[in-house]
Amino acid sequence: MKELHLEYFEEAVNYMLQHTQVKGPGIGLLGISKGGELCVSMASFLKGITATALINGSVANVGSVLRYKDITIPPLGFNTKRIKVNESGIADIVDALNNPLEGPGRQSFIPLEKAECRFLFIVGQDDRNWKSEFFAVEGSKHLQAHGKEKPEVVCYPGAGHYIEPPFFPMCAASMHLLVGKPVVWGGEPKAHCKAQIDAWQQIQAFFHKHLTGKPPGTSSKL
């Protein structure tokens, strides 16, 4: 993963907007981790997006160069010396990334103030992949500083990085392709399980509110 071109995702957005089963006028985006960060980038640069929900996503571009037309956003730098490895060889990378508010890192901060949608940040407060709560707080500050509406931020104590649909088993550690070794994702099983159940409801309510204008429960379909 060296470069990602937003035109690729723009093609998908336009396809969905023209689909006969999509109500419109806009669509919703849902992403987790790097996918959440990509959703922020899509919402910031592409048209036709009404609501964006990200689960433990970043507000800085990470891992690869992002390109859209004549715009280039470099990846946020990192320092491998800040990675801790336990006796089992599993890495804790939560401190590896640089601060996107300082120095060269500012160039990696995604201009989410350009977005014309509402945001929902789902945050696991025991996320060990990166500092998701920090990203959500700074994203919220950034939006409000530019006159945008305050996003919804829902934090879950004891929840790790992979907040998936309800009843998926918690993923405590697995191989991280960018790091090249197993990493710990964080989370306490019971708290993480409860977070997955509640987050699923929060996400559905968010999309019902901003995509249909109806409260959740009025229809089985979004």
Rank of each mutant, 00 (worst) to 15 (best):
L178G: 10
A12S: 13
P169Q: 05
G124H: 00
V62R: 11
F167A: 11
P104N: 09
G187T: 09
L120M: 11
K131Y: 00
G35C: 00
F207K: 11
I73N: 01
I49G: 01
I83G: 10
V65T: 06
G160D: 03
Y15H: 12
A145H: 02
G124V: 00
L30H: 05
L54T: 14
G213M: 01
Y8C: 12
F109A: 12
K84Q: 12
E116D: 15
L29V: 04
T50C: 09
V123I: 03
P169A: 04
E10T: 06
N56V: 02
G36R: 05
S219A: 14
A173M: 06
E11G: 11
E149V: 02
G158L: 02
P169L: 04
V137L: 01
S140G: 03
S64G: 06
F45C: 03
T212L: 12
Q21S: 15
G28F: 02
M170W: 06
R82S: 13
L29Y: 04
I203Y: 06
T72C: 11
C193A: 15
I73Q: 02
G35W: 07
V183R: 00
P100E: 12
K81Y: 07
L211C: 09
L222A: 07
A199L: 03
G217F: 09
K190G: 05
S58W: 09
P216Y: 10
R82Y: 14
V94A: 11
L143P: 00
A172Q: 11
M42F: 03
S41G: 10
G77Q: 06
I90Y: 11
A136D: 00
F109L: 15
I203P: 05
M1F: 15
T52G: 04
E87T: 12
L66K: 01
I71A: 03
A205M: 05
A115I: 05
